[in-house]
Design a protein around this nucleic acid. Structure first.
Lengths: 116, 116
DNA sequence: ATGGTTTGCTACAGATTTTATAGCACAAGG
DNA sequence: CCTTGTGCTATAAAATCTGTAGCAAACCAT
């Protein structure tokens, strides 16, 4: 069965949208792919390079499902980019970026305290 | 090498915190585990049940790394719960929940339009 | 029209991760 | 004792991911 809101996903029979979302984002590279598109559309090959040379087969698999889910589109001549929904989701990812910076700082601090 | 901010992660040599975070959250079940703790600490077995009977070996692997990363703690008698950092991260996940509901609604709408 | 470049992929084998199931050790309660 | 709950470990099989090779179509300049 396709992964989509309304359909059951791993460990959840209800298809509650957030569960489906977690299932999708919990697939390797999905978050990263969305993130790398944040500054504008990229070609398949550019996107691949930005993702540290992810294998083209997996990239294509991910892009297919992101397209099927209405988060990403492919425009002739432009490459891969967000749909309005995808763009909206990615705004949440920007919050993660800020959180992660804070997190790193706190872990760093903890490490120092530990030492003396 | 351990997965932690500052250390290189998949496809990123810099260790930029958000990349590391994506790497962690992109491991199956991690997002779900964090999510299921949102209403308070749970025992190992309760958490396992909430996650649709995820295998105990994987659950333990995930919990170990979440503890190592300072997101989750285990308190004698209470079970597994957030650290302050973990709690903070989970607030962002609540935004995902709202986004996902909107997403589901839009996809539903699109499907209807498609039919006629 | 021919050769080089870019783009968007597919194929496939080997490595890694995840799943499913069984079971163990310890502690508390009756 | 015996049962129940808790926090796991072990292991084999299945699924997923990685790395590499390569192809077809479009475009460009010669």
């Amino acid at each position: 069965m396709t992964l989509a809101p309304g359909n059951p996903s791993r460990g959840s029979t209800t298809g509650r949208p957030v569960m489906v979302l977690f299932d999708i984002l919990g697939q390797r590279w999905t978050l990263r792919i969305l993130w790398e598109l944040r500054e504008g559309p990229l070609t398949f090959r550019d996107l691949q390079a930005r993702c540290g040379d992810i294998s083209p087969s997996l990239l294509n698999t991910r892009l297919k499902s992101l397209r099927a889910l209405g988060l990403v589109t492919h425009q002739e001549g432009e490459g891969y980019g967000y749909t309005p929904l995808g763009e909206d989701l990615t705004k949440q990812l920007a919050l993660f970026d800020r959180w992660a910076e804070k997190w790193a700082a706190e872990l760093e601090l903890a490490k120092k305290r530990e030492k003396g």
